[in-house]
Structures are given as structure tokens and as C-alpha cells.
């Protein structure tokens, strides 16, 4: 069953460089949300703004220089709430590992199993994920 998404990328930069690109509000807006309000420190609430989509509430779980950053949010589109932890949320984790002058970044988002299907339906009603593709990947649900 698929509860987790994991994606990985290798960049030509140091772990510190990558960590700061993710956790520094003035840098994260260069590649992820268009604006950040609040602090991306452990235990702090923040808001990501995605132009044309709205705001997403963020609750930072951990920020450990220069290898780990984790937050909770409500996936599938912009949802701003007072307390993310009281809603159906997912955990997003960044694992940063420097090796031989390059840095490996893995992002993991988990907790999809507990989300209401209505949320998925609402956010992705327009998605045209094909049935053939679906069947092809069915086996993976079992692992």
C-alpha cells in the first residue's frame, strides 16, 4: 500500500548550501513557494503562498543543520488552517547528504493513507491519470 512518496535528486552544491536553500525563508521562495510568512524553525508555524493557488499552512517538526528538515502540511492544494496538526496532514521530510562534493537530496512525503479520499477528489478532479497506467502500478500497492 502506498503511504509514502520518495523522490531523490543530486545537486552540485554543499549540504549547507542545500539546507539553507530549503530552510531560509528568503531562499526557499526562489524555488518553492512564492512567499513565506513566519519562521521555519522546529515547533514554529508558517505559511507558504503559491501565487495563483493560495496559502498553505506549515508546521515545522525539525530543522537540523545541515542534513534534515521536516514539516507537516495539508497536501493537494493550498489549504490554510490555524493548526495543521489538528487536520489530516502529511509529513514532508528532506534528507540532505553530502558526498564527494555533491549533495543528495531526498524528499519524502508520508501519511497519504489517512487522508480523506474527498480531499484527493476535490484537489485532483481534473487529473486524467489513465486506467492502464493505474493497473500497471497496482502491484505496487501490495508491497
Amino acid at each position: 500500500m502506498q503511504d509514502t512518496i520518495a523522490k531523490e535528486i543530486t545537486v552540485k552544491a554543499s549540504a549547507q548550501r542545500v539546507y539553507e536553500a530549503i530552510t531560509d525563508p528568503t531562499q526557499i521562495i526562489k524555488w518553492f513557494p512564492d512567499a513565506v510568512e513566519g519562521d521555519l524553525a522546529a515547533g514554529q508555524k508558517a505559511t507558504f503562498t503559491f501565487e495563483g493557488h493560495g496559502k498553505s499552512s506549515i508546521y515545522t517538526i525539525a530543522a537540523t543543520p545541515f542534513n534534515y528538515f521536516a514539516y507537516r502540511w495539508i497536501p493537494g492544494g493550498a489549504v490554510a488552517v490555524d493548526d495543521v496538526l489538528k487536520e489530516s496532514n502529511t509529513l514532508v521530510e528532506f534528507f540532505i547528504e553530502e558526498r564527494d562534493g555533491k549533495t543528495n537530496v531526498t524528499v519524502k512525503e508520508s501519511g497519504f493513507a489517512l487522508l480523506p479520499v474527498e480531499m484527493a477528489e476535490k484537489a485532483f478532479a481534473q487529473n486524467s491519470g489513465g486506467w492502464d497506467y493505474m493497473l500497471e502500478r497496482l502491484e505496487k500497492f501490495a508491497s
Binding site: Q2, I5, K7, P75, G76, V107, E109, F112, V117, A120, E121, A123, F124, N127, S128, G129, W131, Y133, M134, R137
Partner: peptide, 14 residues
């Protein structure tokens, strides 16, 4: 399809 489309879309976003 609903369940899968949701996951697929989020994968693409990441």
C-alpha cells in the same frame, strides 16, 4: 483512479 491520480499528481509536483 481517484487514489492513484492524487498520488501521481503529488509525485509530479515533487
Amino acid at each position: 483512479a481517484k487514489g492513484k491520480a492524487f498520488i501521481t499528481e503529488i509525485e509530479l509536483q515533487w
